[in-house]
C-alpha cells in the first residue's frame, strides 16, 4: 500500500474503526461493571442522531472552531499515515486540541471554562511525553519520518520500553480515560456537567465525537510504531493497549489536576527521560 492510499484509507476508515472501538469500549466497560451494555453500533446511532438535532449555537464562532478541530485532527492523522515527519504530526495534533479549547472558551459558560482550563493542563501534562517519544524514536532509527521509523525493521519496544510505558501513561490522558478524564469524560453524569463539551449540542457535539474517533486511531497508530517490525504484532499490541486503557479507566477514580500533572511529568522523566539518556549513550556516543 503506498503512502497516498494509506492516508486516504485513514480519512475514510478511521471514523469507522474509531466508532467500532468506542462501541466495544462501551460494551467491555459495561461487562466489567456487571451490566449488559449497549449494541456495538451505538456510537454510530448516537452520532447520526446528533446530526439530526437542532444545532444550538451559543455564538457565531464555536461551530467553526470545532470544524477546525476536526480538520486539523484529520490532517495530523493523514500526515502520520502518509509517513511524514512525526514531530509535524504531533504539532498539528496539538494545534487541533487548541481549537477545541478555544471553542470551549468561546462559549462563556463556567462549566466549559473549567473544562477548557483543565484540558490545557492535561495538554501540559501529556505533550512532553509525546515529544520525547518522537525524539527517542529518532535516536534509535535515525529518522523522524513515520515511514522511516516503521520501515526500520528494528524491534523498537526492546530499545524503548520506558518511553513506551510513559506513552501509555499519557495515552490515558489523551484518550480521556479515568483517572485523567478531568476536562470531559465518556461516562454519564459527572461533576462539572460535561466540562469541555457542556455547551456543544447536536451536530457540534457530533463533530467532537467523530474527532475523538480519529484521535483514537491516530494515537493507536503511534503505539503501533513501537511494534512496527511485524504488522500483526503491532495491531495486536495497539488493541491490547486500548484494552489496558479500558481496564485502567474502570478501576481508577479520577485524580485531582495537581496529581495528574505531577504524576504525568514524573512518568515522563522517570520512564521517558531515563530511557532517552540510556539511548543517548548507546547510539550517540
Amino acid at each position: 500500500m503506498n503512502a497516498v492510499t494509506r492516508s486516504i484509507a485513514y480519512i475514510v476508515l478511521a471514523p469507522i474503526l474509531g466508532g467500532l472501538l468506542a462501541g466495544l469500549d462501551r460494551i467491555i466497560t459495561a461487562r466489567m461493571q456487571g451490566r449488559y451494555g449497549p449494541p456495538v453500533l451505538q456510537p454510530f446511532y448516537d452520532v447520526l442522531k446528533l446530526f439530526e438535532k437542532e444545532n444550538l449555537m451559543v455564538n457565531r464562532f464555536h461551530g467553526y472552531y470545532l470544524v477546525c478541530y476536526l480538520a486539523f485532527l484529520i490532517a495530523s492523522g493523514a500526515l502520520f499515515f502518509f509517513g511524514e515527519d512525526l514531530l509535524m504530526v504531533i504539532f498539528v495534533f496539538i494545534l487541533a486540541d487548541i481549537f477545541l479549547v478555544v471553542a470551549a472558551y468561546s462559549t462563556n459558560s463556567p462549566y466549559s471554562f473549567i473544562g477548557a482550563t483543565r484540558e490545557l493542563l492535561q495538554m501540559l501534562a501529556a505533550e512532553p511525553m509525546l515529544l520525547i517519544s518522537a525524539v527517542s524514536l529518532y535516536m534509535v532509527t535515525g529518522s523522524f519520518e513515520v515511514a522511516g521509523i516503521a520501515g526500520s525493521g528494528k524491534i523498537l519496544i526492546l530499545y524503548l520500553p520506558g518511553v513506551f510505558l510513559g506513552l501509555v501513561y499519557v495515552l490515558t490522558i489523551k484518550l480521556r480515560k479515568s483517572p485523567f478524564d478531568l476536562s470531559t469524560s465518556h461516562h454519564a453524569h459527572q461533576e462539572l456537567v460535561k466540562g469541555l463539551t457542556t455547551e456543544f449540542a447536536g451536530p457540534s457535539l457530533a463533530l467532537v465525537e467523530i474527532a475523538h474517533w480519529y484521535e483514537t486511531v491516530l494515537l493507536l497508530g503511534i503505539v503501533y510504531l513501537f511494534f512496527s517490525f511485524n504488522p500483526a504484532v503491532g495491531v495486536a499490541a495497539a488493541l491490547l493497549t486500548y484494552f489496558a486503557e479500558i481496564l485502567i479507566d474502570n478501576t481508577n477514580a479520577r485524580f485531582k489536576w495537581q496529581l495528574t500533572l505531577k504524576s504525568a511529568w514524573l512518568a515522563t522523566v522517570a520512564l521517558g527521560g531515563v530511557n532517552l539518556i540510556v539511548m543517548y549513550f548507546i547510539f550517540v556516543r
Binding site: Q33, Y36, G37, P38, L56, T197, A201
Partner: peptide, 23 residues
C-alpha cells in the same frame, strides 16, 4: 434503572447531567 440489574444502557440510553446533550 442504571444498575446492573436493569441496565438501561443496553438500549443505548445514558443518564447525562447536561440538558444540551439530552433528548
Amino acid at each position: 434503572c442504571l444498575t446492573p440489574m436493569y441496565d438501561i444502557e443496553r438500549f443505548g440510553v445514558i443518564n447525562t447531567g447536561n440538558p444540551k446533550h439530552s433528548d
